[in-house]
């Protein structure tokens, strides 16, 4: 759900693009389909959430913020999202470079891997990581085969266990914008840097990275915002003791039977996400890339 929202963001932002003055009046009806889409898929559910959050006896928002498990999960979620963002942007940029400049077979392999992981359900990939991380899972099997370890690994369902899987799941969203930017990069600038005496470090730092900086930031913001609301992967790999915000919300709805508190927490998550996006937009002009 969160993934769909994040991917739909460019489509809903696009309707604010300014039009040529003369044609504006005739083309105004073109605004209606996206507007209806926005009302049905974004505004509608938010209104329903607000109504749900206000339906309880007390102040569901204040109650949420007093809950220690919830506040803990907020910090855990923010830390997870931040680390995953930095890791995916760094790895993703290297990945994009390799696709852009590597020989054909490297390109095919890396691009294929990227697309297959995008097309495969998050659930399936999470279970894959589970099988890897279980105390006697694939990781243990390999280490045992190499005589590096004989006792089962106590890694599954810990905070750290969420990280590799989250990075793997989010990687394509960091790679794709950077890749588009790297492919569009004018290679003659590399020649210019070489000819004018720049070594590899100066070329990377002063010529290449500034050119793809915007794409790295957009990829990072996309990953960060998506990570904030991610559900399946943190829940299965982190376990009940390390729940992120979405896990806690699910608990309120399905276990504690407090729909109003769950709705209030959801609104806090959505509001916080939007606030973070707006701050990022102010700082880095992210939305300029959406046109």
């Amino acid at each position: 759900m969160t993934m769909e929202q994040a991917l739909a963001a460019p489509a809903t932002t696009r309707r604010r693009r300014p039009m040529a003055d003369g044609a504006a009046a005739e083309r105004r009806w073109l605004l209606w389909p996206p507007l209806v889409f926005f009302l049905l898929t974004v505004a509608g559910p938010v209104v329903a959430l607000v109504q749900q959050a206000l339906s309880g006896e007390g102040n569901a928002f204040a109650e949420s913020l007093r809950m220690e498990v919830f506040v803990d999960s907020v910090w855990r979620t923010l830390l997870l999202a931040a680390v995953v963002t930095v890791a995916t942007v760094v790895v993703g940029t290297c990945y994009a470079f390799a696709i852009a400049v590597g020989p054909v077979w490297v390109k095919a392999l890396l691009m294929g891997g990227l697309l297959i992981s995008l097309w495969t359900s998050v659930m399936v990939r999470t279970i894959g990581w589970m099988l890897l991380e279980l105390p006697t899972g694939a990781l243990f099997w390999v280490l045992e085969l190499l005589h590096l370890r004989s006792e089962p690994i106590d890694f599954y369902q810990s905070t750290a266990a969420m990280y590799p899987a989250m990075i793997a799941v989010m990687l394509p969203f960091a790679v794709l914008p950077v890749l588009a930017s790297v492919i569009g990069f004018d290679r003659e600038q590399l020649k210019a840097a070489t000819v004018f005496g720049a070594g590899p470090l100066l070329t990377l730092g002063a010529v290449v990275l500034p050119a793809i900086r915007q794409a790295m930031i957009s990829g990072g913001v996309l990953v960060f915002v998506m990570s904030l609301g991610f559900y399946v992967t943190p829940l299965l790999l982190g376990g009940p003791a390390n729940m992120t915000m979405s896990g806690i919300i699910n608990g309120q709805l399905n276990t504690a039977n407090r729909a109003d508190v769950g709705a209030a927490m959801s609104l806090l998550l959505v509001g916080g996400t939007v606030a973070i996006y707006l701050v990022a937009d102010r700082l880095f002009k992210v939305s300029e890339r959406w046109g």
Partner: peptide, 20 residues
């Protein structure tokens, strides 16, 4: 290598660094 040849090049697309 090119950087030790002391050559100055004007490229066809000029290849100016756009962010500088």
């Amino acid at each position: 290598p090119p950087r030790k040849r002391r050559v100055g090049v004007v490229f066809q697309s000029y290849a100016l660094f756009p962010h500088m």
